[in-house]
Amino acid sequence: MFDATHALPALPGVGYKAQHFAPIMADPAPVGWLEIHAENYMGDGGRPLAQLRALAERFPLSVHGVGLSIGGPEPLDRDHLARLKHLLGWLNPASFSEHLAWSTHEGHFLNDLLPLPYTTDTLARVCAHVDEVQTVLGRRMLLENPSSYLAFAESTWSETDFLREIARRTGCGLLLDVNNVFVSATNLAYPPRDYIADFALEEVGEIHLGGHDTDADDFGAPLLIDSHGRTVADPVWALLDEVLDRAGPRPVLVEWDNDVPDWPVLAAEAARAGATLTRVAA
């Protein structure tokens, strides 16, 4: 379950977009691995699966799920879990990750990552779901910290403790999205560096970076939106430095899901992540 073939290299990666297939196959530099969204490859055939087979021959792959609703109160969707098992079975990717969030309500998929309160009860159900996922898939998964726009008054656990305890109880790893840390910390008025200091960095198997938009709440306070539609903000790069200085080199992924740019723009973001990794490794 923890064998060495199931680990991503400590290099920059990018979230794969179909429009980048040709340039990536021609010259992937500086990218050392790719991440795909699991749900986009659950069709029966055609171009998406043909591209994925070709990519799998060249690159270590990370499969990132957005639809399991691990944080929700409803039982996991067994059909969806079976589709995931099928995909991971034939693809045998280096990593599989999902979110500390929910996305399904009364059997309906809402296509967004939604928040949960952090209590002893929700901790138990998230752990039960992670256990079930890892048992069915027969492999360790990584769980990603969310970006938050609000908090539940009833929460009694900090997010960092909540995630550390999930990792401790289930043996899962963590995916640290540094942009999510910055977005949540700004939105909920705490220092992002405190969050990093408190995070179980020893469990981190992958790091995410992405762009965010800036809005304001009812009181005029900054409200950052995790939009994945622009370059990574400078304070997020600074936070990446902090994380890598503490944790050492890790696989670092740049996500860009909306207003996707031409390949050179995304490759430049990945190169910047690569420069940070080189500095840390030196």
Partner: peptide, 13 residues
């Protein structure tokens, strides 16, 4: 869990 930990529901008073 530490009382001083930052994060939703705990930090911010």
């Amino acid at each position: 869990m530490s009382a001083a930990a930052p994060g939703p529901g705990v930090g911010g008073g």
